[in-house]
Design a protein around this nucleic acid. Sequence first.
RNA 1: UCCUGAGUAGCUCAGCCGGUUAGAGCAUCUGACUGUUAAUCAGAGGGUCGCUGGUUCGAGCCCAGCCUCAGGAGCCA
Length: 482
Amino acid sequence: MMKRTKIKDLLSSTEFGRQVVVKGWVKTFRNDRFIAINDGSTLNNIQAVVDFEHTGEALLKRLTTGAAVSVTGELVESLGKGQRVEVKVTELEILGDSDAEKFPLQPKKHSLEFLREIAHLRFRTNTFNAVFKIRHHLAFAVHQFFYSKGFVYMHTPVITGSDAEGAGEMFRVSTIDFDNIPRNEDGTVDYTADFFGKPTNLTVSGQLEGELAAMAFSDIYTFGPTFRAENSNTTRHLAEFWMIEPEMAFYDIRDNMDLAEELLKYVIKTALENCPDELEFLRNRLLEEEKSKPQNERSDLDLIAKLNFCLENEFERLTYTEAVEVLRNSKPNQKKQFKYPIEGWGADLQSEHERYLVEKHYKKPVILTDYPADIKSFYMRLNDPDAQGRRTVRAMDILFPGIGEIVGGSQREERYDHLVGRMDEIGIPRHEMDWYLDTRRFGSVPHSGFGLGFERLVLFVTGMTNIRDVIPFPRTPKNAEF
RNA sequence: UCCUGAGUAGCUCAGCCGGUUAGAGCAUCUGACUGUUAAUCAGAGGGUCGCUGGUUCGAGCCCAGCCUCAGGAGCCA
């Protein structure tokens, strides 16, 4: 029995005359004669040519879109145009039939909305083949980047007993029988009867645990699933997503920004190097899509040019205070085109403001730093008050065109008294965070870290526009299929 | 959660001012053709018009409620 060869290897082979075995799924079967077969090793199909005059009619009928086949034959130079090599079939076996009347994928363009409904089959389309191949390379590149810098990959818990992480609504983890809830005498739920003996949730961030590890290894990162029970219905939010969270001892906010920018550029460069076919396919797909848009809504750069532009240019760095000035003097603000006009210092920036800065004003990734303390988390390092006495924290958000916030991070507050002061202000009970506060009691050092939304990164690199199309099985409000 | 829009054949969509038997392209099936490239040509089958209720002589179309989806906003990665 001959060993099968992957289609990717065959398409670049010059060993004409060699006997080969190809296994894969039928994309189309044309002219009773030409099978386009794909095995996922490449975006491209190999053409297998059947001698239909000497092949049973019943067998030919089973060559339907989606069927799994094994063909044996000679690798030859193609007689036709459109492909360099093809397989002259001597043996044809159907490994798995696919009922043509029921298989939902057709050799034509499908809407992304429809494909989302059949997410279990959409891997077999060119678009999703390309998207998930790129996703794979990006994930691997993240590990490579940190490995080369001596970071330790840390697995922080998925189930957490802390409810003070302060990053939105959480999913409760429980084994309590909801039809028969154990109660205390006062009627409240008796969590001592639950699996962990107390309320537990799915993690919304591994940051706090990451900080503990950074206080021993200096440089660590996490890369794992993260859960937010927010009722968010947007193209850039998921209830279950993957986040990369490095945490570095002895890093200040500037070191933190440098690392984040270097990481982003490294993984984008890796994608460009390793996925040229996939990116080219997605680039053309986008260009095709833009043809139906009016001129002024089309992008200046195509996908690959956009990624290269991102590599070749420094991210624009400015403080919140500077950004507010830019926005205040901007045309849309003066012409009152913002829905939320920029009036003063202190309010959080709205989507429209971030978009203006990134997409209109600077036209490249922007890193915003030093936000007002009142709109940011308790663990962020407090700056000395400025000349006007305004309190800011050393936060940094990286904003990408079309995506918005892709990275959120900060230098952490390493001073015990300041940290506790902020917790008291916000009303976070000290005793719940005692383990976290220990890092500030025993050998506290300046340190920094950030969270990078992996799916938002994949969105940017693939040029897709809906985050549900860059994760295999999206979990969103009212949707946990498959 | 809020705002806007959509839901008609397996898919993408058309359907006039409320009027008789709801259409097209692709897909599927049948046949023809045989170096095709989402093959081509001819023919056929295929519908609970999202759901529930209402208005009307009559509703795919008008009204109300609900469900689902999409885009935008908020929350954020």
